[in-house]
Design a protein around this nucleic acid. Sequence first.
DNA 1: GTCTATAAATTGATAGAC
DNA 2: GTCTATCAATTTATAGAC
Lengths: 220, 220
Amino acid sequence: MPNAGHALASTQSAPQRKRRQVLDAASSLFMAQGYGATSMDAVARAAGVSKATLYAYFSGKDALFAAIVGEACSRHAAAGEGGHANDAADVGAALGAIGRGYLAFLFREDVLAIWRVVMAEGPRFPELSRAFFESGPLRLLTWLAGWMRARQGEGALAPGDPTVMAEQFLALLRTSAFMRRMLGLPVTEAAMAEEKAIEAAVDAAIATFLAAFGPRQALS
Amino acid sequence: MPNAGHALASTQSAPQRKRRQVLDAASSLFMAQGYGATSMDAVARAAGVSKATLYAYFSGKDALFAAIVGEACSRHAAAGEGGHANDAADVGAALGAIGRGYLAFLFREDVLAIWRVVMAEGPRFPELSRAFFESGPLRLLTWLAGWMRARQGEGALAPGDPTVMAEQFLALLRTSAFMRRMLGLPVTEAAMAEEKAIEAAVDAAIATFLAAFGPRQALS
DNA sequence: GTCTATAAATTGATAGAC
DNA sequence: GTCTATCAATTTATAGAC
C-alpha cells in the first residue's frame, strides 16, 4: 500500500504540499508588498489554489500572516544555531567570522524583508514582534555573550560585562549601511560593492572592539 | 480691508488651515496604522472635511503620503540643526550630550513611527526613502564626522577616519534596546526605566569609544 | 471650495456543487 | 478537500449641486 498513514515516509502528502504552496506564495507576497498591500485573492492566485481552499487551511488573513512570520522565526533561529564558527585561532579572526556571518545574514533580502514587515505590523501583532525578537536578535545576543564570557575565561578578552560586550560588538556592525539596506537604498552612492562594505564594517568594528576589550598586554 | 492678499500677515488663511488639518490628521493615521491600513475616508473624517475637499488638496493617497513624509523629513532636518550641544568641557561630556540627545530623539514615538512607515513603504516609494535617509541619519552623520575631525585637530581624539568614528559612535548607541523599540516591544522584560536604559547605553558607548579613540596618553 | 451622494473596483470571507 | 460563484463591506476616486 503506497504511503498510507504516517507522513514520515518519502515525500509529503498532497494536502501538506498544497499547504506548502500557500505558505510559500503568501510568504513571497507578504514580504515583498507588506501585509496591507497583499490580498487573499493574490495569495490564492500565486499559490495556484482557490480562495476557498486557502480558507480551508487558514482561518483568515491574520492567521496566515502569523504562520508566515512564525516560519520565518524558525528559520531565523535555525540559522543562528549552526552558523557560529567560533573555533578560530585568535579572537580577532573569530570575531571576523562572526561579524561577516552576521552581516551577510542581515543583508539578505529575505531577512531584510521580514524585519520590515514585522516592524510595520508590530503594533497590530505584538506577540509576533516578541517571538521574532526572541528567536533572532535575542538568541544571537545570548549566544555571543556566552562566547565572550568563555574568551574572558581564557584571558583572550579583558574583563567586563559580557552582555554589554556582545551588544556593542553587534551594534558596531549595524552602521548606516544597514539603515540604507533597511530603507531599500543602495549601500553607497558611489558603486561600492556590498561585499566590500561588509568587510570594511567588520574590520572597523573588530579594531574598535579590540581596542576597548582586547587582551591587556601592556598592563600585565 | 481685512487680510486680502499675502498670507504673511497674522494667522494662516482658511484654505491653508484646512490643508493643515488634513496633513495633521493624515500624519496621525499614517504613522499609527501605516499606509495600507489608513483609508482616505478615515483621513477625511479625522480632518473634519469631506473626501472631495481632501482630493481638492491632494491628488490621491500616494501624494498625501508623500506630503506627510516630506514634512517629517523637514522636521527631522530641523531637529538635527539646532540640537547639537557640542560646546562641552571635555570630549566625554560632549559625547554624552550628543549620545543622550540622539537616543532621546530616536526613542520618541513619532520618530519611531516614521521610521517604521518609511521602511515598510520604502520599496514602493524609493524617492521618499532616499529623502528621509538624507534628511535624517546622513545629515547627523556628516555633522558628527566634522565634529570628530575638529576634536582631532585639538588633540582631544586620536587620529583616524572621522567618518568611521562617527559611524561607530552612533552605531554603538543603537543597541538591541533600539531594536526592541522599533518592534514596539518594551525596552526590557524587567521594568527597567527607559531613561536608565538610555543612560546605560550612552555610558557604555562612550567608554568603548574612548578606549579606542580617546587621546593617546600612555603612548606619547 | 466645499459639500452629499455615488460610481467602479477590490476587499475578506462564504455557500453550495462535486 | 477543492472548486466556481458570489456576498457584503470597504476601497479610491469623482460627479454635480450649491
